[in-house]
């Protein structure tokens, strides 16, 4: 199964819609609750990052019996130093983002903790690609 969801940069009223669809899908498949939570927390952190830090992007979701692969591809400023960005507490979030309850610099490290596999590629001035792989059975 394959799904795609558009993500609008800066749109904090809709942020989380794609991850919510992922949750519904995993529930329908009867995936274990703890795995669902880990998956959607990682997906949501990544989705909020696109909304908070990029101009826009797409969430691609691929699902088979054993694994879910979530790819978030955005157009945006990219990440210069991914290792630094992964550090807990590092954030370049704007005041507007902080007012929404985000921008503590915890998202990427939380994604790392929850995802079974996390791959990040980024090109400065172009965009970022985040891949989350989960074993669901």
């Amino acid at each position: 199964m394959h799904f795609e969801y558009n993500i609008e940069g800066g749109d904090f009223t809709r942020a989380g819609y794609a991850s919510s669809q992922v949750k519904k899908l995993l529930k329908k498949q009867g995936v274990e609750m703890s795995v669902i939570k880990r998956t959607v927390v990682a997906a949501y952190e990544a989705e909020v990052n696109v909304v908070a830090h990029a101009y826009g992007g797409v969430m691609y979701v691929d699902l088979d019996d054993r694994q879910m692969r979530i790819v978030l591809q955005d157009t945006g400023p990219g990440i210069e130093d991914i290792q630094q960005a992964m550090e807990e507490g590092y954030s370049t979030a704007s005041d507007a983002v902080r007012e929404m309850g985000f921008g503590a610099g915890m998202g990427l490290s939380n994604m790392k903790k929850n995802a079974h596999e996390l791959n990040i590629e980024s090109e400065v001035g172009k965009g970022t690609r985040v891949e989350i792989i989960m074993q669901i059975a």
Binding site: F12, T13, G16, M33, V40, Y44, M100, G101
Partner: peptide
């Protein structure tokens, strides 16, 4: 004390 859509989304994702 944070009341916006992301408060609800966060609750949703965190069960």
């Amino acid at each position: 004390g944070l009341a916006n859509m992301q408060t609800i989304r966060t609750a949703e994702m965190s069960d």
